[in-house]
Each structure stands twice: as C-alpha cells, then as structure tokens.
C-alpha cells in the first residue's frame, strides 16, 4: 500500500534515535537469493532473526513466496565489510584501452 501521511496541524516533529537499541531485538541478517541455477546469489534485503536457522526460514517466507529462488544465503549484517571511498573506482575512467572497443579493427579481419 502507499502513503505518505501529511503533517497534521499541531503534529510534533519526531525525534528519531539513530542506531538505537536493536540489541533488545534479534540481530539483523542480509539476505541473498539465487534466482535459478546458473546465477549468482543476489542481495535482496535484510531481516531480523535470533539465529541462522530461523533467518533462513524467514528469508524463505519473506523473500521467496513466488518461486523467486532456489537457494538463499543469510549473513549477519555486522559481518559485511563495504568499501568507503567512491574515488577508488575512478582510475578506470582514464583507461579506455582496457575495453575491446578501444581498438579499431577493419571489417575484413572478421571475428576478433
């Protein structure tokens, strides 16, 4: 369903606590689904569960109700290590010679 509920007259601004207290609940798991044989597992979202076994069960119910997958992985979110620096990926832009299209080959040469 949808919705953005408008601010009602007199409504208080919410004070949201960031990063607060998920320690009172279940840990967060990242879910990866293999859509069909021959494909990689792909990240689809996350869920909360007390342990890996329950996380797998919940991932099945939460993310594959319509045959969206043949296998799931769950990984504790805290175990994911991510790159932080977008400039890390910039050097590729000045190395066009790494791509096959950089090289002009005459049509007569055929498949290459």
């Amino acid at each position: 369903m949808s919705y953005e509920v408008p601010v009602a007259p007199g409504e208080e601004q919410q004070d949201i606590e960031f990063g607060s207290s998920s320690d009172h609940g279940f840990p967060l798991w990242e879910v990866f689904v293999r859509a069909k044989r021959g494909l990689n597992h792909t990240h689809v979202g996350s869920l909360h569960a007390p342990d890996s076994e329950t996380a797998i069960q919940n991932a099945r119910d939460g993310y594959t109700r319509r045959a969206e997958g043949v296998s799931v992985w769950v990984v504790p979110s805290t175990e994911i290590v991510a790159s932080d620096d977008v400039t890390m990926f910039e050097p590729f832009e000045d190395k066009p010679y790494r791509h096959p299209t950089f090289y002009e080959i005459p049509d007569e040469v055929g498949q290459l």
Partner: peptide, 12 residues
C-alpha cells in the same frame, strides 16, 4: 529493511 539502511533501528 530499506528504512534500516538509513541508520534507524526496527525497534525504534
């Protein structure tokens, strides 16, 4: 799950 990526917890 998507909202939690912004640093707010489900419990909150």
């Amino acid at each position: 799950s998507a909202a939690e990526t912004l640093g707010v917890s489900r419990d909150e």
